[in-house]
């Protein structure tokens, strides 16, 4: 039976990833170009992500953030350029071994059949089946569910959840995979303020534990507060890349987003805060409102 099983199973003996030291390049994309619909969506983008750091991908709609993430994940075929992961080109890794090395959170979490939340998170452990680290399954799943705050509805069916709850379950599944490279596509999109902060704190914790995290974000404030480095994409190219304080300048953000902004230093932490430059609202000023109310109330 076992012989039969191995005949039909794609799972041969697998090489388990060895955690490298901090600062080691975990993911290295060189001169990536991706074409979609006869147009270069990515044009010669290079990005190196080291273990222990969080890199935020930001940029306006259609700048190529998700495409870059898909190319890093091996989903979008690059016409030129290579992505190296754990010392080997992405294409050279068989799918089961790649799953031990990188986890991907898709932008939208979908499920064809109504599995309970708990089972969805357990799916994240599938790559480790048959390895020595299978023993960790219980604790890892429990940790992932606790970290994302989904343990409270562990037995509810996935399709009965709200959008934000689904997004957190999907994140829990990705965390349970325990891959040293994490690629997250807009993990905060459907979440409220508290859970947005929670997700990025998780990113930081994973980086501290030695993982390399790439996260696509829309909120520049979040990126500035939590990322070690920010990569700004603009029309398929890398417009800037570096620590938040160097990258988030009024000139660069204004040019890339075509929206004038003010960049302030947060009074307590000193991290850059990006605020769109807004005209004062036309209409009555506060004094007029107070006067108005006094008149109507008859005092």
């Amino acid at each position: 039976m076992n012989a039969l099983k191995s005949l039909f199973s794609a799972r041969g003996p697998r090489e388990l990833p060895v955690p490298p030291g901090p600062g080691h390049p975990a993911l290295d994309a060189r001169a990536l170009s991706v074409w979609l619909g006869g147009r270069a969506v990515l044009d010669g983008v290079g990005l190196r992500v080291r273990t222990g750091e969080v890199v935020a991908l930001v940029g306006p709609n259609g700048a190529g953030k998700s495409t870059l993430l898909a190319a890093l994940a091996g989903d979008a075929a690059a016409v030129s350029g290579t992505v190296w992961i754990d010392g080997r080109p992405l294409a050279d890794w068989p799918a089961p071994e790649l799953a031990l090395r990188r986890a991907v959170l898709p932008q939208q979490a979908a499920l064809s059949f109504p599995f309970p939340v708990e089972e969805v998170v357990w799916m994240g452990r599938a790559p480790w089946a048959g390895t020595v680290r299978e023993e960790e399954d219980d604790t890892v799943v429990a940790e992932a569910m606790a970290a994302t705050g989904v343990a409270g509805f562990a037995r509810r069916p996935f399709d009965a959840l709200s959008g934000g709850e689904r997004a957190r379950v999907a994140l829990a599944r990705v965390l349970a995979q325990r891959a040293p490279v994490l690629l997250l596509d807009e993990p905060t999109a459907a979440l409220d303020l508290r859970h947005q902060e929670r997700v990025l704190r998780i990113c930081r914790e994973r980086a501290r534990a030695g993982d390399a995290v790439v996260v696509v974000l829309h909120d520049l404030g979040l990126a500035a507060a939590y990322a070690d480095r920010i990569a700004v994409l603009h029309e398929g190219r890398l417009a800037a890349e570096g620590p938040p304080r160097e990258v988030l300048t009024e000139e660069l953000v204004g040019r890339v987003y075509r929206q004038p902004v003010d960049v302030l230093a947060h009074p307590r932490t000193g991290t850059p805060v990006v605020v769109p430059r807004r005209d004062p609202r036309p209409g009555r000023d506060l004094r007029a409102v107070v006067l108005d109310r006094a008149v109507t109330e008859g005092t």
Partner: peptide
């Protein structure tokens, strides 16, 4: 005889093709 060997991978396929591939399933095969 062959069908049950693919049960776990079918569970993962419920997540969608790309997520299944990210979890190590050779989806095409």
């Amino acid at each position: 005889a062959v069908a049950p060997l693919y049960a776990r991978r079918l569970d993962l396929l419920a997540l969608g093709e790309r997520p299944a591939r990210h979890l190590g399933v050779d989806v095409e095969r």
